[in-house]
């Protein structure tokens, strides 16, 4: 047992875009370890409530445990306050949940995405010990380095040195966002061996939630 490690990396990529009246979350569905595929269809998006979803890559066992912890805390909140947690409240809850394990962290790269009470999109990403980042678009996981600059270029419109890529432009409609993320995952699946099989896109608007699936490389 000398070389036992409590962690594994199951790969995979997750991304999200927050728009004025929508939020779009995407993930690939491959679960792998070392050089083998464990599952071709395990999407990394998990609904937390009507308004909030959770997307996460990293060590799958830690992802599942983290979600259990969140669900417990969210249920306690409902019993205490008589209503579901808002997306912003879930984003705030992530920090103590992750930082509580500062010295034996969950090996996870989570994204919390959802709509606020006015139907505006919200996205937050975290590092394994809970440092939050609030950008309008975010990508985490094994394909992160490949695709992150692409999102800055296309969504953040980073075309010259002086462009500051933080906000998603108001003109980015849900339809355009879907196409961009689909292409981002195509590129990631081409070059990252841990990303592939299918890309699942979940679009949330005030009207409801729509799930789309597209084929990626299977090799």
């Amino acid at each position: 047992m000398g070389d036992f490690s409590p962690y594994d990396d199951n790969g995979g990529t997750v991304a999200a875009i927050a728009g004025q009246d929508y939020v779009l979350i995407a993930c690939d569905s491959r679960l792998s370890t070392g050089s083998t595929i464990l599952s071709r269809f395990t999407p990394k998006i998990y609904p937390l409530s009507k308004m909030t979803v959770f997307a996460c890559s990293g060590f799958h066992a830690d992802v599942l445990t983290l979600i259990k912890n969140l669900e417990v805390r969210m249920k306690l909140f409902i019993h205490e306050h008589g209503e579901e947690m808002s997306t912003k409240a879930v984003m705030a809850l992530m920090l103590p949940t992750l930082y509580g394990r500062r010295f034996f962290p969950f090996y996870v790269r989570p994204i919390v995405a959802g709509l606020d009470r006015d139907g505006k999109g919200l996205v937050a990403s975290y590092d394994p010990v809970g440092t939050p980042e609030f950008f309008d678009y975010v990508i985490q996981g094994s394909g992160e380095n490949l695709v992150h600059p692409f999102l800055h270029n296309q969504i953040g419109a980073k075309r010259t040195l002086s462009d500051v890529p933080v906000q998603a432009p108001p003109g980015l409609t849900l339809d355009k966002a879907v196409k961009l993320l689909k292409d981002a995952f195509l590129a990631a699946a081409e070059r990252d061996v841990y990303t592939g099989d299918t890309v699942t896109l979940v679009a949330m608007t005030a009207k409801g939630t729509e799930t789309m699936e597209y084929q990626l490389r299977r090799d």
Binding site: G143, P149, N153, A187
Partner: peptide, 11 residues
């Protein structure tokens, strides 16, 4: 290298 490869692949 990774950023370049991803960008080339997409653009």
């Amino acid at each position: 290298e990774e950023s370049l490869l991803g960008l080339c692949e997409a653009l």
